[in-house]
Computed example of a mutant assay.
Amino acid sequence: MLFILRMFLMGLLFVIAGVLGLLLGLCRPFNPDNSRICARLYSLPALFILRLKLDADVQGLLEHQRSCVIIANHQSNYDLFVVGSVVPRRTVSIGKQSLKWVPFFGQLYWLAGNVLIDRGNAQQARQAMLTTSETLQQQDTSIWVFPEGTRNLGKGLLPFKKGAFQMAIAAGVPIIPVCVSNYAQAMRLNSWNAGGVMIRSLPEISTRGLTLADMPQLMERCQAQMQTCIEQLDRQLAGA
């Protein structure tokens, strides 16, 4: 019964937050700070509805003063509600072009200045990557990417794709890893308290002086740091 009630309230939240976010986007279209506000419209009420205890150690991320590429592990559709509360100012994300057809959410996602990519169209995807590199260099805007490219369902990091690292190297901006404990399989949506989740941002990783030849080592370094951190967060939650 509690699960059904929660899903009803989450559905209602999805519509209400979508309408409010769409109005915000219409009032100031493509403002890169729209994403942060919209993320919180979804996240903060959702955490209350789910009674999901969030422990976030992301001061370094929120206080970062210049453009960067933010990479995070991608577990489930609930990521919007989990990480939405820690999206920093002037941060947009990259999503599938098909998102624009999702009622309310898709339209506000576009109006918030996020980048939509058709992964089946290589030329369009390359052009979008060039656009994001220019955004990082010239518009004081950061980009949030899930480098796994798909949901890992809380079963551990999947291999990283190259896009986020190509952007960071091309723009000469640092990478900030954001690690989320494995919550996707542990959430108890039919219990009063759905569980706990921990988020931690790691120190920035510089790309200054790097070329595309350095990308495999950069990807390996980022994945190793994130894997270690996620395992630490999981142990902390298990011992809490």
Rank of each mutant, 00 (worst) to 15 (best):
G113P: 06
G113E: 05
N114T: 06
V115I: 15
V115C: 14
V115N: 06
V115L: 13
L116K: 10
L116Y: 08
L116Q: 10
L116F: 15
I117R: 06
I117F: 03
D118A: 12
D118T: 04
D118S: 11
R119D: 04
G120P: 02
G120L: 10
N121K: 05
N121M: 11
A122G: 02
A122C: 08
A122N: 11
A122T: 13
Q123P: 01
Q124D: 11
Q124Y: 01
Q124M: 11
A125K: 08
R126Y: 12
R126S: 12
R126M: 14
R126K: 13
R126G: 10
R126H: 11
Q127D: 12
Q127S: 12
Q127R: 15
Q127E: 14
A128N: 11
M129F: 09
M129E: 04
L130W: 08
L130M: 14
T131K: 15
T131F: 13
T132C: 14
T132E: 12
T132A: 13
S133R: 12
S133E: 13
S133P: 02
E134G: 08
T135D: 01
T135A: 11
L136H: 02
Q137K: 15
Q137V: 10
Q137L: 11
Q138D: 12
Q139I: 06
Q139W: 11
D140Q: 14
D140T: 07
T141V: 11
T141D: 02
T141Y: 01
I143A: 05
I143K: 06
I143V: 15
W144V: 00
V145L: 06
F146R: 00
P147E: 01
P147R: 07
P147M: 02
E148P: 08
G149Y: 04
G149E: 07
T150L: 03
T150R: 08
T150C: 01
T150P: 08
R151F: 08
R151A: 06
N152R: 02
N152Q: 06
L153E: 13
G154L: 05
G154Q: 07
G154P: 00
G156P: 08
G156W: 03
G156E: 06
G156S: 03
L158V: 02
P159W: 05
P159H: 01
P159K: 03
K161E: 09
K162P: 05
K162Q: 14
K162A: 15
K162M: 07
K162Y: 10
G163R: 14
G163F: 11
G163C: 10
A164D: 08
A164F: 03
A164Y: 01
Q166L: 15
Q166D: 13
M167L: 14
M167I: 04
M167V: 05
A168D: 08
A168K: 04
